[in-house]
């Protein structure tokens, strides 16, 4: 296998004592990030940057499946897509969050963990 076209990274972490698995994949048009504490994909979010010509960027985040009553999950996706965009990327983000701990501190740590291990 000379060069697989999709760069991937995976690691195990502990967030507030909970074992957390992280998998990142960089596709040509999207970044996929899977964060799981339950061993499943959990809530799946899609985030895109939308930019009018000469205008400011807006970010479009929606829940593809899973928890829709947890506003911190889209907030998490929003932070990550903004980071991708600030680093000059125009890729969209697919984020899967299978979490046990939905506290603001845990989500903040997760966003930090994703950014620390960025592949964009």
């Amino acid at each position: 296998m000379t060069s697989f076209p999709v760069q991937s990274k995976k690691l195990s972490a502990s967030i507030k004592g909970l074992p957390t698995e992280l998998v990142l994949s960089a596709y040509e048009d999207s970044i996929l990030v899977i964060v799981t504490q339950i061993g499943k994909m959990g809530t799946l979010l899609h985030a895109r940057k939308e930019q009018a010509y000469g205008g400011a960027a807006t970010f479009n985040v929606h829940v593809l499946m899973g928890k829709r009553d947890e506003p911190l999950l889209p907030a998490c996706a929003r932070q990550v897509i903004e980071h991708i965009s600030n680093n000059g990327g125009s890729k969209s983000l697919v984020l899967s969050l299978g979490l046990k701990d939905h506290s603001p501190e845990a989500l903040k740590s997760i966003v930090q963990l994703i950014i620390d291990n960025k592949i964009w």
């Binding site: 690691l11 972490a13 004592g17 740590s109």
Partner: peptide, 19 residues
């Protein structure tokens, strides 16, 4: 940040191949 520790352990089984 606070209370994150990482290890590049085995992680989730990921298989990648081309054909």
């Amino acid at each position: 940040m606070d209370d994150i520790s990482t290890s590049d352990g085995e992680g989730l089984p990921l298989r990648m191949f081309s054909d």
